[in-house]
């Protein structure tokens, strides 16, 4: 009985998500009488009952924008932003997590490390960028000197696990919303820009999952066996470890999507990130602040957000 109900919930969740995705992707082709960012100056803040006659089936917000158009194009923004961002996060997390878990070490001559660090310092415009250039120049001189004297420079090896875990811990010290909001405050971002920002700030979660699974899988006898056969590490990782190590991401992906849906809506509600003329459920909620009595502006996006997040959470359960 419980399983039937669970299966029913999953089906309903999937159906809702498909509906949101279909509505969002088809929004530009739908015969909507109003564009999402275009105010109807003769129908500002009208309720569905007052606006239905003029084609505003769900009314208009206090800025005169059609709520139905905002809802549909908001779904489009959500789909086009969160799905690629969640996939990119998973990809980045899988790559970095597997490298960290497989215990690879990155080895290179010391001047190469120094050159990279110097150029990085300069490229990121850290304090006194000339210092980075000087370090880079010093590294080049060191490398040339070693070659001139026919000596091989010392090789420094860096544990990828320590590097990736350290970077993840560093990102984890700042709350995700604060981090994204701080970057987004610098100016409006495009959909792709915001997606990239979400991925770059959220990869540590999936990376930790994949690392833990990689650590488990690499100790399994069949991996030991292929290693004994002398196969290269990249092949072992790609062919034999990753297919098993990526399993936790299947459960993580819907959760990540739900988190991104919430994050995007929060950013739009705060007026950060996407341009103000990009339709978003969070922006509809923000407009509802202008007139707390206009329930028809707040209710549809709230309901849509609730159902979408709930559906994603239901999908993540086994």
């Amino acid at each position: 009985m419980g399983q039937v109900a669970h299966r029913g919930r999953r089906r309903a969740a999937l159906a809702w998500l498909l509906l949101v995705a279909a509505a969002g992707l088809a929004a530009p082709c739908l015969p909507l009488p109003f564009a999402p960012a275009e105010p109807d100056l003769l129908a500002v803040g009208v309720s569905p009952a007052q606006g239905a006659g003029a084609g505003h089936w769900l009314g208009t917000d206090p800025l005169g924008r059609d709520v139905l158009a905002g809802l549909l194009f908001g779904a489009r923004t959500l789909v086009l932003l969160t799905v690629p961002a969640a996939l990119l996060t998973a990809l980045l997390g899988a790559l970095l997590g597997s490298l960290a878990g497989y215990g690879q070490r990155l080895a290179a001559p010391a001047p190469t490390w120094l050159l990279g660090a110097g150029l990085g310092w300069w490229g990121l415009a850290l304090p006194r960028p000339a210092l980075g250039l000087a370090a880079g120049a010093g590294a080049v001189a060191w490398g040339l000197g070693q070659r001139l004297w026919r000596r091989s420079p010392p090789v420094w090896a860096l544990s990828l696990d320590a590097l990736i875990q350290g970077a993840g811990a560093l990102l984890g010290t700042v709350p995700r919303l604060v981090l994204v909001a701080a970057v987004a405050t610098g100016g409006t971002l495009s959909l792709a820009g915001l997606g990239l920002l979400l991925a770059l700030t959220n990869w540590p979660g999936p990376a930790r999952l994949v690392r833990a699974e990689t650590l488990r899988v690499r100790a399994l006898p069949f991996v030991e066996a292929v290693r004994a056969l002398g196969l290269p590490a990249a092949r072992i990782l790609g062919r034999h470890v990753l297919p098993l190590a990526l399993r936790p991401l299947r459960a993580d992906l819907p959760l990540r999507l739900a988190a991104f849906v919430g994050l995007e809506s929060t950013l739009s509600f705060l007026g950060l990130g996407l341009p103000p003329d990009t339709a978003s459920w969070g922006r509809l909620l923000d407009a509802a602040r202008l007139d707390p009595a206009a329930w028809w502006t707040a209710a549809p996006p709230m309901l849509a957000l609730l159902l979408t997040t709930g559906a994603l959470l239901a999908l993540s359960k086994k």
Binding site: A37, R65, G271
Partner: peptide, 15 residues
């Protein structure tokens, strides 16, 4: 930001 009158003017001009 947050001024409904100014935002409506901006949205109308943009549209």
């Amino acid at each position: 930001t947050g001024d409904a009158m100014q935002e409506i003017i901006a949205l109308q001009f943009r549209a």
